[in-house]
């Protein structure tokens, strides 16, 4: 045992010595340059839990942010907002939460897990999506009531499913879906593969899918707009970086990127 303790002692003695020497060196130089200090710091990182529908746009914005703030890294965990809220409530190490609807955020807020009140940084609208070529001949929301057409909707428990239900109710349509997919991306995938004739997904998702699918606008979509709340979390490991990223997402530069991706920006 004693030998072992001795070994451990030797092992940590070296770094301490290095730290002392480098501390002396810094003191000796005594030129407090902000940039140098920042670069010399160990890299800072924040973990962002974000709704699956934000995957592409936030990945892009995260990279942009990292370029603007050297030495930082933004890591993402994309999933259904409700699942993310569950994970945050269960103590997952998250710094920022970007939800695709207010309900999951409310859960987090109710548990007092946010650092500051959430803000709406983007909004999304539903769009009918059909495979390219529109094999089912879907033209509007009314086709969702046709039992012969294969229709996919998001599960009611996830935000896009809630929104879809709301839109269909507003339009007075008794939809006959064949499947309730677990999230918006799974729904979109079924369209991309041509397994369903139509689905209701976010406009942004339709853009992401590119040529494989086609979006069909419908008037009722205006009446159900999905707000995306955003908040830095109370148990963030790096509160400064978290709030800096939240601020960045509300900057004009970020708003442009969001708009390009199909989001509405309030």
């Amino acid at each position: 045992m004693r030998r072992r303790a001795g070994g451990t002692g030797r092992a940590w003695r070296t770094p301490v010595a290095v730290a002392l020497v480098s501390g002396l060196a810094v003191a000796a130089c005594s030129a407090p340059d902000q940039d140098v200090a920042q670069v010399g710091e160990t890299s800072r990182s924040a973990v962002v839990f974000a709704a699956a529908s934000l995957t592409e746009v936030l990945t892009e914005l995260g990279a942009e942010f990292e370029r603007g703030h050297p030495g930082t890294s933004i890591d993402f965990n994309f999933a259904a907002s409700s699942a993310l809220a569950q994970q945050i409530a269960a103590g997952a190490p998250a710094d920022v939460f970007a939800s695709a609807s207010p309900e999951p955020m409310d859960q987090v807020v109710d548990l007092d897990l946010v650092a500051e009140p959430p803000v709406i940084f983007a909004a999304n609208r539903l769009q009918i999506v059909v495979p390219s070529g529109n094999p089912g001949g879907v033209t509007g929301l009314a086709d969702f009531a046709d039992p012969d057409k294969v229709i996919a909707l998001c599960a009611p428990a996830v935000p896009c499913g809630g929104a879809a239900r709301e839109v269909l109710e507003l339009a007075g349509i008794d939809a006959k879906p064949d499947t309730y997919e677990r999230d918006v991306r799974a729904t979109l995938t079924k369209v991309r593969l041509g397994e369903v004739d139509a689905a209701l997904v976010y406009r942004t998702d339709v853009l992401v899918a590119g040529d494989e699918v086609r979006g069909v606008d419908f008037p009722e979509s205006e009446r159900v707009v999905n707000d995306y709340p955003l908040a830095a979390l109370a148990e963030a490991s790096d509160a400064d970086l978290a709030s800096a990223f939240v601020d960045y997402l509300r900057s004009p530069a970020a708003e442009d990127v969001l708009r390009t991706a199909g989001f509405d920006v309030p």
């Binding site: 409700s82 699942a83 569950q86 064949d178 309730y180 677990r182």
Partner: peptide, 22 residues
């Protein structure tokens, strides 16, 4: 493969997963 529709393709594991959301 089978999707998720109550009574037709929603098995217990799927029900568990989706219940977890809400």
């Amino acid at each position: 493969f089978a999707g998720n529709f109550p009574g037709r393709t929603q098995t217990m594991p799927l029900a568990v997963y989706l219940a977890m959301e809400s």
